[in-house]
Design a binder for these strands. Structure first.
Length: 366
DNA sequence: CGCCTTTGACCGGCGC
DNA sequence: GCGCCGGTCAAAGGCG
């Protein structure tokens, strides 16, 4: 009750930011007129480091919503409509705060897991080196499991796939890119053919995608993306590229790799990640695949669930996942490694991605 | 004519 | 070694 009262008596204003996104600031008590707000003063009042706010672009998730306020500062009736919106926003911010805590915990566990895996790889390398020295002419038996090299890891990164499941009657979802079909095959276990496309927006672009209807549900179109674009993209395509690239990076960044060195798709499932049912992982050979399931949503149903990906409404929705991470810029597609590194280093990525997708689906249903 | 799709052939990886 | 399978190639044909 105390928390709810606190939220009701809090106000939120949009604060212009240097980037394309805007900041949401929460104020205690009566909502100030925007003209009266001294943003620098507000930032200085924040219990958080000023520079931290500037760099993280998501101060909203860090605000303390539990602070008590004086009853004399309740908003009056004239402001009730706006207050309702503020309350909704404040509640959302609080929810994000909780999710942030969950993800922080998850990140801690992943760090531990990564550390253990790193040590294991190191031990295996040392063991392999010692074996090579003791073998005639350094010959290594192919019976000895080979340690994945850095080059192999890089190759694996390129081979990582992001699969998007969406309800659609169209033969192909619109994702803002230009594609050329170069093959079609019948895949085992699915009565529907699988079509192969390559990106034609760049002469040397390595990005490919496969489109196939789900064998169990014909209304579900499964689009699998592979590779990273090597050319500038239009905004709609950029949002998709950033989403799939970061999803692939998330896939390979370690969440599903445990201390024993093997991939465990169930790790995310058992984690505290919110909405984890929307993201599934496949460790099946030869390529690791992350699946973003857009067919299942609390507000989704069979009659409203059909949509085309990246209609005009979508860029903003997916952009929110990029914006919240402060990486919405043109250089992104040309610096995938840096971008994905930045993205995976941010524990809020998964929640932002899921939130963006969920938000889009909800918008499509309305 | 250029670009696209179609479709059978071909290739390489993998399991038996 | 062989067959299966996924993925790609490239010739042929369609379309604007």
């Amino acid at each position: 009750m105390e928390k709810e009262e606190t939220i009701r008596n809090s106000s939120v204003v949009q604060v212009p930011h240097s980037s394309s996104s805007s900041q949401v600031m929460l104020f205690k008590g009566k909502q100030p007129m925007v003209d009266e707000v001294d943003f620098f003063a507000i930032k200085n009042m924040s219990p958080f480091n000023h520079e931290q706010i500037e760099h993280h672009h998501h101060v909203d998730t860090c605000l303390d919503l539990l602070t008590k306020i004086s009853p004399s500062n309740k908003p009056d009736d004239v402001e009730s409509d706006a207050t309702i919106k503020y309350v909704a926003l404040a509640a959302e911010l609080h929810q994000m705060n909780v999710e942030n805590q969950h993800l922080t915990d998850l990140l801690d566990r992943l760090r531990i897991s990564y550390k253990e895996l790193e040590e294991r790889v190191l031990r295996l390398k040392q063991k392999q080196n010692s074996q090579a020295k003791t073998t005639v002419r350094g010959w290594i038996s192919n019976k000895v499991p080979r340690v994945v090299s850095d080059q192999a890891s890089e190759s694996m990164m390129k081979k990582a796939r992001v699969s998007v499941r969406a309800k659609s009657e169209a033969s192909m979802i619109s994702d803002g890119c230009q594609w050329r079909k170069y093959g079609q095959k019948m895949a085992k276990g699915n009565p529907h053919p699988r079509a192969y496309y390559r990106c034609t927006m760049g002469t040397t672009c390595p990005v490919r995608k496969q489109v196939q209807r789900c064998g169990n549900d014909r209304s579900v179109l499964v689009t699998t993306y592979e590779g990273q674009h090597d050319h500038p993209l239009p905004p709609a395509a950029k949002t998709m590229a950033s989403t799939t690239t970061s999803a692939a990076s998330m896939l390979l960044s370690g969440p599903m790799i445990s201390a024993d060195g093997f991939i465990h798709p169930t790790m995310l499932e058992s984690s505290s990640l919110p909405c984890s049912h929307n993201i599934t992982l496949s460790a099946s050979a030869p390529f690791p695949t992350i699946t973003l399931d857009l067919t299942q949503s609390p507000t989704n149903n069979s009659s409203q669930g059909q949509f085309s990906l990246f209609q005009p409404i979508l860029p903003q929705k997916f952009m929110s996942a990029s914006n919240i991470l402060g990486m919405e810029n043109d250089s992104f597609v040309n610096t995938p490694n840096a971008a994905t590194t930045a993205m995976t280093s941010n524990p809020e990525f998964q929640a932002a991605l899921v939130a963006a997708i969920t938000s889009f689906i909800e918008s499509s249903s309305n």
